Each structure stands twice: as structure tokens, then as C-alpha cells.
Amino acid sequence: MQWLNEPPKWSHSGNQIVIKTAPKTDFWHITHYGFIRDSGHFYFDAIATDFTVSVKFRGQYKDLYDQAGLMIRADEKHWIKTGIEYVDGSQHLSAVVTHEYSDWSMTPLVNPPETFQLRVERVGDAIHIASWSEAAGYQLFRMTYLPSLIPLQVGVMCASPEGDGYEVVFEDYCIETSV
């Protein structure tokens, strides 16, 4: 795995990746705010086939827009980030899809689990994003598009757009590829 924007403090041992985010980091592209941010932390593998990636994670979210989860990236103008985003004092299930302009969807988590679990699948040019619940297993909450003819960067991401940083722990990160 390799870094885009390596954080100031991190470790990777066994099935655990622990990251302390740097302040004022984010991924965003133009929409509504008018700015471009490509400074969030992204630890990734390059994948050129269909795949399924999953991870469990927990964070000490405290500041507006603290975020953690998975990222799928073709380049700086075409990417998806999904996971938890801390908004108005609570955790939200979030997905940002960027094709030159970012869009953002989020749903508040009334009773967020201590550890959150995500799965993202690439099937051709379709990206399926699902979250885990004890009651129902994985449930699809977003399907979107990313070009299928290019290798993608796939991995864990986190950022602290407004705050001074926080710690996030990723566990059981797993990528399965199709041949």
C-alpha cells in the first residue's frame, strides 16, 4: 500500500491501521463551496479489475466534518469517498461522488455502532456501496459510476477539515479481486 498525503502519525500492524489526522485536511471538489481540497489522508492499493473491499473502523470524531472510511479514486477529479462524517454533533453515513464536481449524500445515524463496517464493490463501471447492520447484514445505500477501463486506487481515507485532528482505527481491511 502507499500514501496520498501521509499523515503526521500512523501505524500499520497485523489487521490494524491507526491514523492521527492532520488538521485542515479534506477531499472536496468545487460544488457549493467553490474550492478544491485534495489534502486528506488516503492509504491505498492500485486495482485494475473488479473487486470487493471492506473495512471496520472507529474514530474519536469531535470536530465538524471529521471523516473516515473507504476511498476509490481514478484521479484528482474522479473519486468516491464513503464512511462516517461528523456533522452537527453526530455521526452520519456519508458518500461523496466526484466527477469534476463533488456531490454529497448523508444520513444521520441515530444509534451509531462503536465500530462501523463498510463494503464497496466494483463491477465493471458500477460501484456498489453498502454498510453493515447486525439486524440485516450488508445493505446497499448507494450505487454510482466510475470508469471501468482504468486502474483505480482503493483504500482507507480520513480527514479533519475543520478540526485539529483526531485518531481513527481501521481493522480487517480486505480486498478481493476478480480475475
Rank of each mutant, 00 (worst) to 15 (best):
W3H: 14
W3C: 11
N5W: 01
P8G: 11
K9F: 06
W10Y: 13
N15Q: 14
Q16A: 15
I17Y: 04
I19G: 01
T21L: 09
T21F: 07
A22G: 07
A22M: 03
P23W: 09
K24M: 08
D26N: 12
F27N: 03
Y33H: 11
G34S: 10
G40F: 11
T49Q: 02
T49S: 15
V55I: 08
F57A: 01
R58I: 00
L64R: 13
D66Y: 05
L70R: 08
R73Q: 12
A74G: 12
E76N: 14
I80R: 07
I80T: 10
K81Y: 05
T82Y: 04
Y86K: 00
S90H: 13
S90R: 13
S94Q: 05
A95W: 03
V96E: 03
V97W: 13
E100V: 10
Y101D: 09
Y101E: 10
D103Q: 08
D103V: 06
S105P: 00
L109D: 00
P112S: 10
P113D: 09
P113K: 14
E114C: 10
Q117T: 15
Q117W: 13
L118W: 09
R122C: 00
I127P: 02
S133M: 01
F141H: 04
R142V: 01
R142P: 00
Y145K: 04
S148I: 03
S148G: 11
I150K: 13
P151F: 01
V154R: 02
V154N: 06
V156L: 01
S160K: 05
Y166F: 15
F170I: 13
D172E: 15
D172I: 06
Y173V: 14
I175L: 10
E176T: 15
E176F: 07
